[in-house]
């Protein structure tokens, strides 16, 4: 399993059906935007709350990772859209998948 260092998301780049999975960081959630506002990283328009902001626009991470290819041919077929902060190895989630119960 792979962990994105930018958003903390965990994913498997090789799907069980043999295809590949390409991660892209999600936009900030309400709680993440709230933390960013309190930390001074984001300034909301006057009179706007975090509740308003999260519905009115999308807040993307500055260190967003997007593993999708730039293009399907030419030089872009060899490049991902954004490396972000890279990745780390991660253990599979506990309790995930199929559990075989002995007879």
């Amino acid at each position: 399993m792979t962990k994105c260092n930018a958003c903390g998301g965990v994913y498997d780049t090789a799907q069980p059906d043999g295809t590949s999975y390409f991660h892209r960081c999600p936009p900030l959630s309400h709680s993440e935007l709230d933390a960013a506002v309190k930390a001074g990283k984001v300034q909301l328009p006057a009179g706007e709350t975090v509740d308003d902001a999260i519905l009115r626009r999308t807040y993307e991470r500055g260190n967003m990772r997007d593993e999708n290819l730039v293009a399907t041919s030419g030089p872009g077929a060899q490049q991902i859209k954004a490396a972000g902060d890279g990745t780390s190895n991660a253990a599979a989630a506990a309790g995930a998948g199929v559990v075989i119960v002995p007879k």
């Binding site: 994105c4 998301g9 994913y11 390409f22 999600p26 993440e32 290819l69």
Partner: peptide, 15 residues
């Protein structure tokens, strides 16, 4: 992707 605690889900149609 299994998002981190407090984060939203997001998956993208691949190139």
């Amino acid at each position: 992707t299994d998002p981190a605690a407090g984060a939203e889900c997001s998956d993208t149609v691949p190139t």
